[in-house]
Structure formats: structure tokens, C-alpha cells
Write a protein that binds this DNA or RNA. Structure first.
Lengths: 106, 106
DNA sequence: TAAACTAAGTTACGAATTGTAAGTAAAGAA
DNA sequence: TTCTTTACTTACAATTCGTAACTTAGTTTA
């Protein structure tokens, strides 16, 4: 009748990682620091949602936003240590997908 | 300008695993075969969405639905081999969350 | 034997989330 | 001076989600 005692940290991790776009965004940032426009062009994401997700990942301390005071200013997004620590999750998904996921070509 | 050549299998894996509820559902089913009502009571999910997700995971061959012809009939959901193979992903998330995720108690 | 209950969903609908497209401010290039 | 680019923001339409009530079939309770 009552819910299983699921670890709140694990639950929070799922909330973050399962939020649409977030894992793909982290995957993209594994390549190193990138600018807003670069990310936007690589993924097929709208600017509205991209901004939203970057802010979310920033408040979760997964992503760091840096304003480089050059002229013109450049804004760079990069993974924090916490963010890079997600890499094994992505690796596990890659592993599973290469072993089990089939794409149906019609 | 153009998108990175992201592996379509990996992309599909992300689509499935990042779909709201799916990973939690798989996590729940790692405990073994379970009935609809058990799953519904353990997770805090609505029947509408639960049915939808179970069907999705069934068509993806991650979950198997079995009708046990007892009286009354019992319907059991369980992970397939493909489904159980997702365990390392969950393990990696668990690992990351225990190391990095903080819950803010106010 | 009628009334109530359980299991496994389904349906209708309002609320929340997303995607789309257009707009903005500041700076640089043509 | 007009046109672009960058890093967003805004308005609004489309999609998805959650809530609650309903269904069908069998089952226990009174």
C-alpha cells in the first residue's frame, strides 16, 4: 500500500537526468566548454528550452556558465566536476544501446 | 552549422530512458515480476500514464506482459533480458547520486 | 442474493510543459 | 548606415501529463 523507501538522492538524480534534453546536453558538453550557439546548432533544441535547461543544470551545479570579458564578450558553458562525473551513466547507456537497441529502418 | 553525427541507437536509448517515469519503472521492475496494482502503489504514478508507459516499454521489448490464466486472471509485468540489461545504467546513476547529489533540507 | 470491493485498465478534461516563430539589445562587419 | 551575429526573451499554439471518475469482470461480505 505504501511506497518503497526510495533513496531521495537517487530520486533527485532521476528527476534531473530524465528531464528532457538534460542527458543529451550533458553528453554534448562532455566534448568540452562550448558556447550557447554551438550547443544550439549541434542539438536540435529550441533556444527557449536550451536557456531553461542550462539554467537548471547551472543551479544543480552540473554546468558552469562563464562570461569571458573579451570584446565582444563570449559566454561559455562547461561541465563542473559533478557534471563530468555523469560520464559513466552515459557510457552505460551507450553500452546498452550498442548491445540491445535496434533502429527500425523502413 | 550541422549537427554532430550522434549514433541513432544511442539517441533512441536516450529517448526511451529519458521519457518520464520509464527509468523509475525499470528500476521498480528490477525487483522482479510485479502486478499492475503493485507498481502503481509503489510509484506515485497515475493509471493513465502507467498503462501508457508499460505499453511503450512492452513495444520496445524491455517489459513483458503476461496474463496468468488463474481465477481471477493475474497480469504480471516483468523485465525482459533487454530490460535487465539496463541495470548498469541505474547502478551508475545510483553511484553518481550517492557521490554528488545533495538534498536540500530546509 | 444484493451490495461492496478489487484488478486492470479507459475516458474526459484541465493544467503544465514544449515547440515554434518572432523579437530584442549590444556589438561588429560590410 | 544597414546587415549580421550572439545570447537570449516573449507570445502563443501544440503536446503531454495529472486527476478524477468510470468500466468490466470476477469476488467477497452481509
Amino acid at each position: 500500500m505504501d511506497q518503497k523507501n526510495i533513496c531521495p538522492r537517487f530520486e533527485k538524480a532521476l528527476m534531473i537526468l530524465n528531464h528532457r534534453w538534460n542527458t543529451l546536453l550533458i553528453y554534448q558538453l562532455l566534448d568540452g566548454p562550448q558556447r550557447y550557439s554551438t550547443i544550439k546548432n549541434q542539438l536540435n533544441i529550441s533556444s527557449r528550452v536550451l536557456t531553461e535547461r542550462l539554467k537548471e543544470l547551472e543551479t544543480e551545479q552540473i554546468v558552469l556558465r562563464t562570461v569571458i570579458p573579451s570584446t565582444p564578450v563570449v559566454i561559455e558553458y562547461e561541465l563542473t566536476e559533478k557534471g563530468y562525473a555523469i560520464a559513466p551513466v552515459l557510457k552505460a547507456i551507450e553500452q546498452w544501446s550498442s548491445e540491445w537497441v535496434t533502429i527500425d529502418i523502413e
